[in-house]
Amino acid sequence: MLIEINNITKRYVMGDNEVMALRDVNLCIERGEYISIMGPSGSGKSTFMNILGCLDTPSTGEYKFNGVDVSNLNDDELSDMRNREIGFVFQNFNLLPKLNAVQNVELPLAYAGVEAAERRERAVRALQRVKLADRMYHKPSELSGGQRQRVAIARALVTNPGILLADEPTGALDSKTGIEIMKLFDELHQEGNTIILITHEQEIANYAIRNVYIKDGSIHYDRINTNRTIVS
């Protein structure tokens, strides 16, 4: 079992009100799964993603990643978890504008303490994997949206993380480019990567093998996608 989530809740205090963003969520994810987590805005889906991505910790409950209890880790340990095990792909790419493609991809390795030569080699390999080796020295501003997202995916892949956590990865792209990105995720899944797709669009969720639907802070359904969109 790669991810094991038992009865987690997340409370926020906003002024005088206490908001329950997640209540009693249970979820298990096996290595190599391709799962979508869908829900309308305000459903607690982003909170759930933050916890899955070790950006935040649950108020109560247990989150085990590869057998390690993440809910009790301190800030440095969470940083290391994100560095090693989580590959983030964001809606708005979140590349550093001043660094070129390969430097952006190298960055997680720099924080992992990998030395410069090896870093470059692995970053180039990751860029080759997303078919962007020829744009290596371009800055994000010199790349198209689809290319930027592929740089971001390369950055997520470069550390060989336990999961790829994609948050609305096609949200800022036109539909044709979006399909290309989804095709890339499909390939990555076939290569054995575990992919978690966070989205509010049914259309995107349909690319995944398993669909989880969150509503009002708890899981509404969790089922195998029988209506899967296949990109060939």
Partner: peptide, 9 residues
Amino acid sequence: IRRAIGARK
């Protein structure tokens, strides 16, 4: 961004 990809405080 830096924190998300693993930078410590």
